[in-house]
Nucleic acid binder design. Sequence first.
DNA 1: CATGAATGAGGCTTCATTCAT
DNA 2: GATGAATGAAGCCTCATTCAT
Lengths: 222, 222, 222, 222
Amino acid sequence: MQTTTSSKRPRTARGEATRQKLLETAEALFGTRGFHATGVADITRKSGVSQGTFYVYFDSKEEIFRELVRDLSRRLRAAIQARVSGIGSRLEVEEVGLRTFLEFAAAHRNLYRIVFESQFIDPDLFRWYYERMAEGYARGLERGMRAGQVREQHAETLAYCLMGAAHFLGMRWVVWEGREPPPEVMDTLRSFILAALSPPGKGEVVARGGAGEVPGRSGGGG
Amino acid sequence: MQTTTSSKRPRTARGEATRQKLLETAEALFGTRGFHATGVADITRKSGVSQGTFYVYFDSKEEIFRELVRDLSRRLRAAIQARVSGIGSRLEVEEVGLRTFLEFAAAHRNLYRIVFESQFIDPDLFRWYYERMAEGYARGLERGMRAGQVREQHAETLAYCLMGAAHFLGMRWVVWEGREPPPEVMDTLRSFILAALSPPGKGEVVARGGAGEVPGRSGGGG
Amino acid sequence: MQTTTSSKRPRTARGEATRQKLLETAEALFGTRGFHATGVADITRKSGVSQGTFYVYFDSKEEIFRELVRDLSRRLRAAIQARVSGIGSRLEVEEVGLRTFLEFAAAHRNLYRIVFESQFIDPDLFRWYYERMAEGYARGLERGMRAGQVREQHAETLAYCLMGAAHFLGMRWVVWEGREPPPEVMDTLRSFILAALSPPGKGEVVARGGAGEVPGRSGGGG
Amino acid sequence: MQTTTSSKRPRTARGEATRQKLLETAEALFGTRGFHATGVADITRKSGVSQGTFYVYFDSKEEIFRELVRDLSRRLRAAIQARVSGIGSRLEVEEVGLRTFLEFAAAHRNLYRIVFESQFIDPDLFRWYYERMAEGYARGLERGMRAGQVREQHAETLAYCLMGAAHFLGMRWVVWEGREPPPEVMDTLRSFILAALSPPGKGEVVARGGAGEVPGRSGGGG
DNA sequence: CATGAATGAGGCTTCATTCAT
DNA sequence: GATGAATGAAGCCTCATTCAT
């Protein structure tokens, strides 16, 4: 669906470079000043090209914004995937996933504003972003439940709770403070996750990953 | 700080009515179309007054927006306060708080967009809003910890996690679906809260409030 | 239909004056340079108002153009009406009508370009303009036929032929030459009309109006 | 004068084909959407060549437009010539000429818009087009007058009247209705021409061509 | 208190044309 | 001969805000 990377793609290396430059500049600017405070002229000026060039690669200011959201979605999911694959314990998967999300966010601070502002620019895309994320997340949790590693609960609800927690933590530390959450925060987050997911009787206090088990894909944060 | 209800207050009853009408219209419009898509002209037209009149009561479009955020903050906190006061169990306080938040959100759907959009209009106000909320929240949790009703953890982190969970659930159900979260969601949320807050060994399964204890104010959601 | 004088009408005399000024300037500019070569900025500058003011009274550059066409349509028809009413002879009515049209065109040289350019700006309006004109025209001719003053023919076809003749003559003399057609042209036009309309056997040579008869409204030119 | 087929002519067959393709596409596009609504990019895209290629064959967008007008002028005159040559009766020549014009117009619907729009693109060319047409027309009529086949009148005026009639009929039926004028229209047109041209006393009612006489070239319509 | 007119800066986008490959 | 990238001027329109009545 929204995944289509629409807009006129360049046919030469030179064009690709220009387009890329535009994308990067836009990410920085949108992420810093916000969509409305950023003008197309700002983007092109900082990219060292003329305003007309912008429209050679993007249909509109909104279009490049959307492209960025899709891009970010792709990159974040890939990053989590990479770190999580191979881990057997569901609990650990979730924990690593959240941590990866927070690290990614810290490395790409603009992520937050852009994704979250998309809610006011293109509500459907925003929703798509989170539903996609939640879906993968929920699937992983359900697998965990079937394997007895995660307490039986409404998976989707759990997914949104966890994404929300991660998002707010990211907002609090990464966006406002400009750094990764300090250790005590990460510790609390970990125990929070464990408590929320662990089956009754099991390790509410367990500090680190449980026993090996069925591996499986899962989203991470939000 | 930002609490000052600044701007020209009306002197006559007629003026007060006009100002109020403007505020209500703005809430509906900002909440529905967003800040940028709403023009001052839209507000005045729908309010049945001239554009000039707008500036009799508000210094700028941003100002009325801020006024709305402060207003909402006040009303939400009051609503939670009212429902939570008197409850002894910390766990129950949190649960009722979250539930109240979700109900309030459902009753004032525009809340979400407005408060959340404020992040892109007046970042300081937005931060103030959440820090204020988190602070009260954390204080309550700390009291609970001291009373042994809540597991020892970094209170602020916990507060943000809980607010985030509530916010995302509200987004998922209230905003996207247009209704209050269904029972299974609320059930999962409850068990989620309990698991996250309960001290080791205690009530992970406990369905309803624990023993009586120190009452105290507390925030609710996000 | 298109007759609606849409756009925001002024509520005060001052506003009405501004709007009028804009309309006049636009007529001169559109008529002289054409629609595309005339910028909104040109219109406002020459009118002594800011660009923003333009949009207080007109929704778009196209809108003021349309307004002009409607206006012209109204004025031309009124002018012909005034001159033609009371004349009994159908033949004379047509002749006076055409003459009036040519005089009107000479007095409002911009008429041509504007009406004719409307064909490329708003084809429907253009068509409406001529169909309206032709309709009245044909009705008058039919009355003349029934009264035996006009040869039996397809009235609408006759109407378009006559409008076309008038239009091309206006183009040739008024637009290109900048003056009213010289006497020999008007003479030829008159005999042309007479020949085309006169019933068999009658007045091909008749120089001036025939016998009195049923008066009636009729369009004139094009 | 404007007849010069200027601009870079291709040297190779491949080039000639490209140029031709461009010309055809432009005719279709200009005729359909109009000059201003058609972009160079539209033309090249639909022609399957790059934008740069366009400027290999034409100096500007206006230039290809002019080329089209000249082309059309040439083709129309040739078409009329072919049909009219050999006919002896002046009256019949005019009638056949008009008919041919209408048929040509129906076969090349875009003719109208292009030629007529040229009035707003290159007024001189437009004027040239019609003066050229009128000149030949008038010459033919004058010959007819001298031969007593056409009533004595100002020939040029007659020419413009006839061209105007033909043009408006073409507009009414070919352009608006998308078909050739129905029989009753053609009949009325014929009797219209006859009445307008016939010498006094002669065939106002004569249905078909009169006696043989001096042949001669003549324009047809507009 | 209220209004309607006026403003003007600025934003997004289009598009004919040029250029290096 | 053909291409795709790049340009930059210019145009239309929006809109928060001010002002005189």
